[in-house]
């Protein structure tokens, strides 16, 4: 296996999607946990913990979508037209969530706040779940015709495996979000969030074990790549070590290292997913010969080459400002005049 343009773009699109999962993952998780704290003050702190960054986090999804369109237009066309209702619901939830974040603080009043608190939380959970369902379907496979079109409907997408991955995603983001809250808060909310970390970790580990078992039992083709390249077994191994490291760091009060561990957990999970589907981008089940792979779904080599130049120019800049923004807004959240 040599490193050709197609594989580079598989990795780059994967990186953008992983960036999205890492970053929007924690703010979706914060949203999922939002209703667990009661006071207005604490809810504001939760919102402001993600305040300066959630917008930028969502850009990873938008850019990932653009990169997918440019590098693998067939996947972009097949998946988004095929997952029509599910995707429209996801967009609806993401927009609604943005509305809730922006508008909660704009007026006093308990009912106004409660309305947007519930909207924020429900739309965060729904978004995470739908993202997981989409990933679950890509892994499990969807029925594709020999014209690369999806043959099914909304309910084809809802089966036990995809729902399992959907719940796993909610659990993962909740854990990730809880650790982020621990990192960004102090006092009573900080102590409460430490409790959330414990509960969400249990939730996540249970879901993780069930998904792994289901994958091994019912989707054995997903382990093919690891079976033929045993060195890749390191990825799930690292993944488990990162998960195990989280409670260790939390108990020692090293919040930042716990959050890093959680980031690496997301990263290794996404890598595991990429290894499992490789070289397919959309696996066709029941007709594997119709699958969209990183070769038959890609743009022309000229475009992949040109886009690589654009990526080489742009991605260092993107990383530079992402890091500086997080650096500027480091530390515990304080409510100020410009806060939500």
């Amino acid at each position: 296996m040599h490193l050709d343009l197609h594989i580079i773009w598989f990795i780059l699109v994967g990186m953008l999607m992983t960036g999205y999962a890492l970053l929007d993952g924690f703010d979706l998780g914060v949203g999922a946990l939002h209703l667990w704290t009661r006071t207005d003050q604490n809810r504001r702190i939760m919102l402001n913990a993600i305040g300066p960054v959630w917008d930028g986090n969502e850009v990873w999804l938008v850019t990932g979508g653009g990169a997918l369109f440019a590098a693998f237009p067939e996947v972009y066309a097949t998946v988004f037209s095929g997952f029509y209702e599910a995707f429209m619901l996801l967009l609806f939830a993401l927009i609604f969530r943005a509305v809730a974040i922006e508008f909660r603080s704009k007026r006093p009043g308990e009912k106004w706040h409660l309305l947007w608190d519930v909207s924020f939380s429900v739309s965060s959970i729904l978004s995470s779940f739908l993202i997981g369902v989409a990933l679950g379907n890509l892994a499990w496979g969807i029925p594709l015709s020999d014209h690369k079109e999806f043959m099914g409907n909304f309910f084809t997408l809802l089966h036990p495996y995809s729902i399992l991955v959907g719940i796993l995603t909610v659990a993962l983001f909740m854990m990730h979000g809880a650790i982020y809250i621990v990192l960004k808060t102090e006092g009573a909310l900080h102590e409460q969030a430490r409790g959330w970390v414990k509960n969400t970790m249990i939730f996540f580990i249970v879901m993780f074990a069930m998904t792994t078992l289901a994958t091994l039992l019912y989707a054995p083709q997903m382990s093919d790549v690891i079976r033929t390249h045993p060195v890749l077994f390191l990825v799930p191994l690292l993944n488990i070590l990162f998960i195990a490291n989280i409670p260790r760091e939390i108990s020692k009060g090293r919040d930042f290292r716990a959050f890093l561990s959680s980031c690496f957990t997301v990263l290794t999970l996404m890598a595991l997913f990429a290894i499992d589907v490789f070289p397919n981008l959309v696996y066709s089940n029941p007709h594997p010969e119709n699958s969209l792979t990183l070769y038959n779904a890609a743009s022309s080599p000229e475009t992949l080459h040109m886009m690589l130049i654009i990526a080489a120019l742009g991605i260092p800049l993107v990383l530079a400002y992402t890091v500086s923004i997080y650096w500027i807004f480091r530390g515990k959240v304080k409510l100020e005049e410009t806060s939500y």
Binding site: T63, G65, A67, F69, A70, A71, A77, S299, I310, L317
Partner: peptide, 15 residues
């Protein structure tokens, strides 16, 4: 048009 149009959208995202 993915080859052409998609590239412009991706560049918009990145830049």
């Amino acid at each position: 048009v993915g080859d052409v149009f998609g590239s412009a959208l991706a560049a918009e995202g990145i830049f």
